[in-house]
């Protein structure tokens, strides 16, 4: 994650149609200009969305790339939040070091879970990771001496040399930068030998083995990387949030991230990113319709699975294609 990250930032993908490229440019402009014309509230929502984008990238690596079912994402995210907040408090170094520490701890735990996950798959893996996630939430809430238990942990402001981050608008450029960094990282991984190995394992383990891929190692690494990215998202959270409570690191959060990835379209990086943004906005807008939000949320999930299982973007793309051919 250290070597010239900007070089790998996504600058439009070869083969992307002109309209999509234009949309991307518009989105980039909007992203940069955002803090200049909106309130801190909107920037806060943007910061949260960017964190969820990175969380979705993490889940994409394990589910989308390696095809393993993981339901412990909130746990890795939480490990990242706690580890980077505690590191930030313990040593007087610029905040990225704390973030790196958070990502490493989460990644290490991810490797361990990945090693356990070698023994099972499908629903068994889903339930095992689910149980691990619940157990971790219990640990966050009961390991008082480290996490401050059910009182929640106050996160000290992030520092970059003399600059102390005290507002959402100040944090925004950093959050955006780290988000782009994570996107770049995921794209690089996905296009590397490792990424090809991931997908080979997803499609057929036997074929992958025949190609000389170490299937076990690949699966474990997939878990570790996924967890590290989730932990990194936890570090990003600490850039602009001042408090973390175990209540917000439960199954709800895992499901939210899973839903985003699925709504965006399983197996596609851009789907994961788009899903995070679209579903994150829906969730915030639903806060205005409190009486019905659970029903709407559930209905969206069911309808998507029924009529647009390959994600919002595939669905829209298909409709456009149909319209064109129809003419």
């Amino acid at each position: 994650m250290s070597s010239s990250p900007l070089a790998s930032a996504p600058e439009g993908r070869p083969g992307l149609p002109g309209a999509a490229l234009g949309g991307l440019a518009l989105a980039a402009l909007l992203a940069v200009a955002l803090p200049f014309f909106t309130t801190g509230y909107v920037v806060y929502i943007a910061n949260l969305l960017l964190v969820f984008v990175v969380l979705c990238l993490g889940l994409h690596i394990v589910i989308g790339e390696t095809g393993q079912f993981s339901m412990a994402h909130a746990a890795f995210y939480g490990i990242g939040i706690y580890a980077s907040a505690l590191a930030n408090r313990a040593v007087d170094l610029p905040y990225p070091f704390a973030m790196l520490f958070g990502a490493l701890v989460a990644g290490a735990v991810g490797l361990f879970i990945g090693a356990l996950a070698l023994r099972m798959r499908d629903i068994y893996l889903a339930l095992a990771t689910f149980a691990f996630g619940e157990a971790m939430q219990w640990v966050f809430a009961n390991w008082d001496s480290v996490t401050n238990g059910p009182n929640g942990l106050r996160i000290a402001p992030a520092r970059f040399g003399p600059l102390e981050i005290l507002s959402d608008k100040q944090a925004y450029p950093f959050v955006l930068f780290f988000c782009l960094l994570a996107i770049g990282f995921t794209v690089v991984v996905s296009r590397s030998r490792l990424g090809r190995a991931f997908r080979a394992v997803r499609e057929s383990e036997v074929a992958a083995m025949a190609m000389g891929i170490d299937v076990r190692r690949t699966r474990v690494i997939g878990f570790g990387l996924s967890a590290a990215v989730a932990g990194f998202a936890g570090g990003m959270f600490g850039l602009f949030q001042t408090f973390i409570h175990p209540d917000s690191l439960g199954f709800q959060t895992t499901i939210l991230v899973l839903t985003m990835v699925v709504v965006g379209g399983l197996g596609s990086i851009w789907g994961a990113i788009g899903g995070a943004i679209v579903f994150g906005l829906i969730s915030e807008v639903l806060r205005q319709a409190p009486q019905y939000q659970e029903i709407i949320y559930g209905a969206i999930l069911m309808l998507f699975m029924m009529y647009a299982p390959h994600g919002l973007f595939a669905f829209v793309g298909e409709r456009i294609r149909e319209a064109r051919h129809g003419r």
Binding site: T39, Y41, V42, I45, Q241, D247, S248, E284, R287, P290
Partner: peptide, 21 residues
């Protein structure tokens, strides 16, 4: 009036909306 769902992230969003927006 804003809904905070009794959830930390949503509560902070509600507070920031009320204060800044």
């Amino acid at each position: 009036v804003e809904d905070d769902r009794c959830n930390a992230n949503d509560l902070v969003a509600a507070v920031k909306k009320l204060v800044e927006q």
